[in-house]
Design a protein around this nucleic acid. Structure first.
Lengths: 211, 211
DNA sequence: TAGATTGTTAATCGATTAACAATC
DNA sequence: TAGATTGTTAATCGATTAACAATC
């Protein structure tokens, strides 16, 4: 592990660096200075250099950063060269949309299974997967060993689903449920996506400019 | 406006307070102390008191906070008593899922229109709305004056859609596109939801525990 | 009243920004 | 070499935590 611990603020900026560098690369940029990048991204050059230096020395004095090299270094830090096997629990509107909308391969994952309890959709196709009955979850996990799971189940099913998955070896959760999944379990990580909270934040913003 | 400016960190915690207080209320809690709430939420009692005191004095010494009163105060701060008219641009997989998955009413909004360019879906139903052709956007806006918009269009359409909407009076964006919408326009606010970045963050987490 | 818990000030901690020597 | 720009240390700023007087 590169340096001891990287602060959460830095980590949250990494995917955005990765995206911007990708666009720069597509637009034919070969090199970029921290100052130029800072102007494009709305950050300070200092912050950019501090952030990158958490992981090593990627630049060259007097020159700046090689766009392509820097991008692939950040990609490696983010684990995007991996294809961690992932499953989806809950293939309702949202689960279906996530599964078909996200490019898992470029995000470091491989979606290998989708499960639901609703008999009407079990057996149907979802991309190149067939939606399975949740009763098959255990045998599927022993065989395919998914490491990550997307939770798109109803809020009251979230906690028990999570603990079952942990017992089956799942180590990472992308949680879209209303439920506030916090992981006391050691070595288990959670990324909560609270869409409702996000929309409420927008409401606050409108409310505070109108007042 | 209650106090001068509220820090972003505080604002991001408000929806979560609101959620927890709702659950407490449903479970019959009448009062709660900052210490008890802090244990439930995984925060410090200090932080909770500091946060609430940005907006006024909602507690009572020796007693704590009245759950129901506090919740409704926070709801007012968040503008959840409003029903800001909102439209959806882009009714693909994700747009459709957002529209049907989110309870807009309880988040301070009212979804009053949905637009797309795909002729195959124009005219179809989406909840209680009929999907309209994007060419009707202008006349619709003059008549119904939406204040907020959900962007679920392809990334290359995002920037122009946003600027058109601004010219039609839209003041708030809930942006699901890959595009990094940053608002230099005065009085326009943006809430970016970068699902891809979120998944990448999860990849980082896995990567750093495995190393 | 005595005990509990707030509101608020002061202390600490961490993150961002500024500055500059090192060096390509 | 001279100019540019990094890597890194120091200064600043802001957010979190601790402490405690006020008061219900």
């Amino acid at each position: 592990m590169s340096k001891n611990t990287i602060s959460n603020s830095v980590i949250r900026r990494l995917p955005r660096y990765y995206r911007f560098l990708g666009e720069l690369e597509n637009n034919g940029y070969v090199r970029i200075s921290s100052r130029e990048l800072s102007e494009k991204m709305g950050l300070t050059a200092s912050q950019i250099r501090q952030d990158f230096n958490c992981f090593g020395e990627f630049g060259q004095q007097g020159y700046g950063y090689n766009v392509s090299d820097l991008r692939s270094e950040i990609g490696k830090i983010l684990g995007l060269d991996k294809k961690t096997p992932m499953i989806l629990l809950g293939v309702g509107n949202l689960g279906k949309a996530i599964a078909s909308h996200i490019d898992f391969q470029s995000k470091g994952f491989d979606l290998i299974g989708a499960f639901d309890t609703n008999e009407e959709i079990i057996g149907k196709e979802l991309g190149n997967l067939t939606i399975k009955d949740i009763s098959e979850l255990q045998s599927f996990c022993s065989e395919h060993k998914p490491v990550a799971a997307i939770l798109c189940v109803p809020v009251n099913a979230a906690a028990s689903a999570a603990s079952q998955l942990i017992s089956l070896g799942v180590k990472a959760f992308w949680n879209f449920t209303h439920y506030d999944l916090r992981m006391e379990y050691d070595g288990v990580i959670v990324e909560n996506v609270h869409l409702g909270d996000s929309l409420i934040t927008l409401s606050y913003g409108l409310n505070s400019i109108e007042l």
